[in-house]
């Protein structure tokens, strides 16, 4: 997690992905799984919240 670039030049002139999970695909996957869980939790709670 953090910058995939070592220098300012590499970041400023980047051509591909620039997000902070470029070097940590596992973290991106974990966040996506959490996102799905949040969505499912919302759907479940929408039946039980009164």
């Amino acid at each position: 997690m953090g910058s995939p670039f070592d220098t300012a030049e590499g970041y400023v002139n980047a051509e591909g992905a620039i997000h902070s999970f470029v070097g940590s695909p596992a973290l991106a996957t974990i966040c996506l799984i959490l996102s799905v869980i949040i969505t499912l939790w919302f759907l479940y709670r929408s039946f039980t919240l009164h």
Binding site: G2, F5, T7, A8, Y11, S20
Partner: peptide
């Protein structure tokens, strides 16, 4: 925390 390390301009400290 989640975007640490980016150097925004040469000579500057990273985030």
């Amino acid at each position: 925390i989640f975007a640490a390390g980016y150097i925004q301009q040469a000579g500057q400290p990273p985030i």
